[in-house]
Design a binder for these strands. Structure first.
Lengths: 244, 244
DNA sequence: GTGCAGAAATTGGTTGGACCATTGAACCAC
DNA sequence: GTGGTTCAATGGTCCAACCAATTTCTGCAC
């Protein structure tokens, strides 16, 4: 075990101080997302606080999505942390019905279009290569299984958000995506959900690769429109089968 | 490797269960923001879990801004909670530098344009009257004080988000707005910040009132563009005055 | 009765220690 | 190699205290 440069905590506001110290530690050690940070017991010992206090602090970070705990394994960094980061926790009420889903889709339409346009302007060769790689994987899955693979589809979109130069896009849309998937567990009865969106992935990528922001925006809007249609179709099915 | 849809099973999820139960309790008792909820000891006893587990759960809610704890007094509801709420914690690394502000503005540009376009489609007569009322107030303040009033300006924009038929727009942009103002009371020392955006408020409203979504979108983009320019100007000033 | 200072009860914050459940690595038998 | 077994490490939960801030009650002076 290496030597950690973690000086003991001073006085009140324990768990906040713990987080500050931890953030400083992460920066000094240049820990990146995916890496494991010290165990709770070690942190408690080094910071001279009880393990419970360490746990409350880590619970806060976990709630903010900065960290992931795996029992029996350890606590892992999930996002870049720094001393000067700001938190903007949003809680959206009532997203579990059809109306709520359509609302998140409206947000996603706005952000997806903007991200695609920004990406067309800013993506460099490496970004484009990565995006096309994900696109190839997705298309292959589509042909093999004759249907959309939501996992590979999501990877493709994420690659675009990452290349657009603004991490907020990925953060916001990722939250929406999670909500969306809660519904795909119990699909709306639409078998080939997302099927119609398939061709627009390639056309959108072509616009991005050609550094054509307005074209990319237009293709992104078409893509979302097909999803909205699927959703409406599913809602109609649901309404029919709901009659008692 | 074939594709199974097997979500991991959940055996232990104590604190999540606590939060679910607590959310149900809040809904049953119709507790409103500001009201006090049961003490940690009572919750631990009633839910048959340790107080420690209750605390970890409440720590999560506190981190999300749903609840406020006051030592010696109690734990108080800070926002409406429901069983179906969605959490979207956003973390902005280096939020008080120029880059961070520009990133929030990029999000705002995407949402502002979409909201204006939606509003042009959906706003009824009452909505339009309310928006114009705020606009009149803002313009009067502008003329009287020879400068933008951020308070009245914000009221005007909020009226648009409310009329666009999707409350998510207001929630997300409000979070950005709060972040924007938390560190930059008078952004970057630019005296007449936002001055150039003034005329576009009226032109944007005219497009909305004429139910012209694309026009409204275009004016919204122009408006944000002036803010971005101000920001860049301020950053340049800051860079100059920073030399020692 | 009123007002106020101090005691007492209440409540969140912290501690230390114990044990459970899961994970992953090392090891072993086949 | 494959498939178990053991075992140590790690996060999850629990308990029983005690500390610190706040609120409430009490009783005295007036």
């Amino acid at each position: 075990m290496t030597e950690f440069s973690l000086p003991p905590i001073q006085t009140t506001a324990r768990d906040d101080a713990v987080l500050k110290a931890l953030a400083g530690f992460v920066m000094r050690e240049k820990l990146e997302p995916g890496e494991r940070l010290p165990t709770e017991r070690i942190l408690a010992e080094r910071l001279k606080v009880s393990r419970n206090t360490v746990r409350e602090a880590l619970t806060r970070w976990e709630g903010l999505g900065l960290v992931e705990r795996r029992q029996g394994s350890g606590t892992y960094l999930k996002a870049a942390v720094s001393l000067d980061m700001l938190h903007m926790p949003l809680t959206l009420a009532g997203g579990n019905d059809f109306t709520g889903l359509m609302r998140t889709l409206e947000i996603r339409r706005a952000l997806e279009a903007e991200a695609a346009a920004l990406c067309a302007v800013r993506a460099d060769e490496d970004d484009l290569a990565e995006i096309e790689r994900k696109l190839d994987i997705m298309e292959e899955e589509f042909l093999n299984r004759a249907g959309m693979s939501s996992e590979e589809d999501w990877e493709f979109h994420q690659a675009i958000y990452r290349a657009c130069g603004n991490p907020l896009f990925e953060q916001i849309i990722a939250a929406m995506h999670e909500l969306f998937h809660r519904f795909w567990e119990h699909p709306l009865g639409v078998r080939d959900f997302g099927h119609a969106s398939f061709p627009y992935h390639r056309t959108m990528f072509n616009c991005i690769a050609a550094h054509d922001p307005e074209g990319a925006r237009a293709e992104a809007l078409k893509l979302i429109a097909t999803v909205e249609d699927d959703l409406k179709r599913g809602a109609a099915n649901l309404k029919l089968s709901d009659r008692k």
